[in-house]
Design a protein around this nucleic acid. Structure first.
Lengths: 226, 226
DNA sequence: CACTAACCGGGGGAATCTCTCCGGTTAGGT
DNA sequence: ACCTAACCGGAGAGATTCCCCCGGTTAGTG
């Protein structure tokens, strides 16, 4: 029941190659379909049978770990870095803009950061670090008078997850629309009055398109039904 | 291909009774599972075969219309009412709090209002009216100096959908947490400084539970997989 | 070059879900 | 009470997706 891959015997060359192909295929599919994508699709895209996928990775979580492990560690480093900012508010906004850039560009990363997926060690570490970062920056920004004193790190996390989850819907019509929404959210955190919003607002048609996407977070369904 | 029910011949008594049973069952199931719930579940709960459901309703959209038609018309009236407020900002907040109360209490209504479900006439009418309401109230609130001039009705709609979609996740742990988030969002719309937040913030544990729910918007999946 | 352990992919069982067929049953008028 | 059109529900075809079994193939070694 332990790890599927024994470190003792290095994989045979073909096995290793297939493993790489699977990770590459999974990365592509996760990026534009999210981490709930059918595993069979990934195997097909990699040009191997589904059995090979299950032989290399115990399940979805292990594949996710293999695909996103490195990039999650990168984000983790960015979080650490952000906390070293002297101006806490500047550090916070820079950090969040970086995160949202990732959420908007990569559906898989979005799933990982805006939902509670279990069983991925790197992800648990990231969540912990992320919470620590937000807590620290928010607290210091409050001390520096840049954030309203009644907001908590939990408030921020919830709002970020809610907004982040919706972002992919808007990227279809306007790739940078998230900047505007993040700015609006952050303005709600500040004690003083409003600051100008970046980027143009969505047009009504673009909004409709975005709303449509919102419902399609995952619609596997089955056959004929619309 | 027209309507499945002929108005000429009223339904036989048993047929009508089953129709009512189906609507009642659908209402219950939609309320706590959302409108993507399996139709077979609804038929089973109503105590009839799935064929009876398909005989009475052409598909999911027609059933939704039958279940939510009345309540949607109620909301529609509330929107009309809200627009008659002299103080646009007060009207807007009252309207939104009412809507969010519904979104938090009823998963089906939430799906209907935060995603772009197609094929339900009452819903199209509601969306149109809702947009008109927000546009009107926001515009007038801006003229009255209560809302920052650079925000648009589309901005508001997007943020509301994003937050509304996340609300059910928080209701498990804290039924009224949405008040706090809505207040935070609305504060971002105001030109002046911050106003006190209602309701307590989520605890870290409650936040975790909420994040977990976020991913479970719909996880039909299949068999053994976790 | 021969051998064997590791590896491979197709195919299939099981679980879900939508939607339809068909033989048996019932409501409601005469 | 009888008859017929309308109605009913179980059963199942077809579509997905997860996951594993099994006979054939291949990498790497002596």
């Amino acid at each position: 029941m332990g790890s599927r891959v024994e470190k003792e015997t290095p994989l045979r060359r073909d096995a290793r190659r297939n493993r790489e192909m699977l990770i590459a295929a999974a990365r592509e599919i996760y990026t534009d379909q999210g981490v709930d994508a059918p595993l069979d699709d990934i195997a097909r895209r990699a040009g191997v049978g589904s059995a090979t996928l299950y032989r290399r990775f115990a399940g979805r979580a292990e594949l996710i770990e293999a695909v996103f492990g490195d990039s999650l560690r990168d984000i983790l480093r960015a979080a650490e870095e952000a906390r070293s900012a002297t101006d806490a508010w500047a550090g916070l906004t820079a950090y969040l803009e970086r995160i949202f850039g990732l959420l908007a560009a990569d559906r898989g990363t979005n799933d990982l950061m805006t939902t509670g997926i279990q069983g991925v060690p790197s992800l648990d570490a990231l969540r912990k670090e992320n919470h620590k970062t937000l807590d620290d920056l928010l607290g210091r920004a409050q001390e520096q008078g840049k954030v309203r004193p009644d907001a908590t790190a939990e408030d921020l996390q919830f709002m970020l997850a809610a907004l982040g989850r919706a972002v992919p819907g808007s990227t279809v019509a306007a790739p940078l629309a998230w900047r505007r929404y993040l700015a609006l959210l952050l303005d709600g955190l500040r004690p003083e009055g409003s600051h100008p919003l970046p980027a143009p607002s969505l047009t009504p048609d673009q909004l409709n398109a975005a709303m449509l996407q919102l419902g399609k977070v995952r619609r596997p369904r089955t056959g004929r039904a619309d």
